[in-house]
Amino acid sequence: MSSTFNLDASFAALADPTRRAILARLASGEATVTELAKPFEMTQPAISQHLKVLEDAGLIVQRIDGSKRPRRLAKAGIEVIDQWLRMLRKALEKNYDRLDGVLAEMQLNKERKPR
């Protein structure tokens, strides 16, 4: 039962483009709220709200470092990023599979032409 709740929470968390971008940013390493807020032109409270949603969904975790609370990807968050990279690869592969077809066609046309 609890895994169903987790699943719903991660989908709600992933439905927002800012939260997806935060996850992608954390893929390149731990970051503080200030660092995360910078590229999004958002206030820190707004970013903190997004971070809470990601945290509740189990996608990110925070660490206590003096007065700072740097966030990093949790295991589930890393899985989501891996999934995205696999999907990006798949989209590229689809294009290049089509290109294989175009190249085969070019070769045929060349062979048909009288020399």
Binding site: R20, A21, A24, A27, L88, A91
Partner: peptide
């Protein structure tokens, strides 16, 4: 990171 996220 944003580009990868958008592509995704």
């Amino acid at each position: 990171a944003a580009m990868l996220a958008t592509g995704m």
